Structures are given as C-alpha cells and as structure tokens.
Measured scan of single mutants.
Amino acid sequence: SRSVIRSIIKSSKLNIDHKDYLLDLLNDVKGSKDLKEFHKMLTAILA
C-alpha cells in the first residue's frame, strides 16, 4: 500500500533529497497498477 511504500522510503539509507524526491513522486502516482510499478522501481533502487 501507499503507506507501506512511504515507510520504506523514510526508513531507507538514501539521503534526504532523494527521499523527498521519491515521496513527491509517490504523491503523483495514481492507480494500483502505477503503485505496483513504483514499488518495483523502489525495490530496484534500494537493492
């Protein structure tokens, strides 16, 4: 869910600018399909 993804971003080791950017992107995501794609992208970034 959106709140879980937000929590993953906030607890990541990324610097604050990257976190803010990803949180802004997350706010722009519409629909469950796009949310799944965003989660895939985030997982790849944090891997």
Rank of each mutant, 00 (worst) to 15 (best):
D28L: 14
S1D: 11
V4S: 09
K10S: 07
A44C: 06
G31E: 06
L35V: 04
L22S: 00
V29R: 04
S32Q: 09
D34K: 12
S11V: 05
G31Y: 08
L14K: 01
N27H: 07
S12H: 02
I16K: 12
D24E: 13
K36G: 08
V4I: 10
D28T: 13
D20I: 15
G31V: 05
L42M: 05
S7R: 12
I45F: 11
L23A: 02
D20N: 15
D28Q: 14
D20R: 15
N15T: 15
I5W: 04
H18E: 13
I5N: 02
K19T: 03
L42H: 00
S12R: 02
D24T: 14
T43D: 07
K19V: 05
S3T: 09
A47N: 10
K40F: 06
S3E: 12
K30C: 06
S12P: 01
D28G: 13
K10F: 07
S12C: 05
K13Q: 09
H39S: 09
L42K: 00
Y21R: 09
S7E: 13
V4N: 08
L35P: 01
N27C: 04
I9Y: 00
R6V: 13
H18C: 12
K30D: 06
R6G: 04
R6M: 14
G31P: 02
T43R: 14
T43V: 12
K36H: 14
S7M: 14
L46E: 01
Y21S: 05
D20L: 15
I5Q: 02
I16Q: 14
S12L: 06
L14S: 01
K10P: 00
L25Q: 06
T43P: 02
D34P: 08
L46A: 02
L26F: 03
D20V: 15
L14C: 03
R6D: 04
M41L: 07
Y21L: 08
D34W: 11
K10W: 06
L26S: 01
D34A: 15
L35I: 05
S3H: 11
L23E: 03
F38Q: 00
L35F: 05
S1M: 14
D34V: 05
L25V: 06
H39C: 10
I45E: 03
D17C: 06
S11T: 08
D20G: 15
D34H: 11
F38H: 01
L25G: 02
V4Y: 14
D28H: 10
E37K: 15
I16P: 14
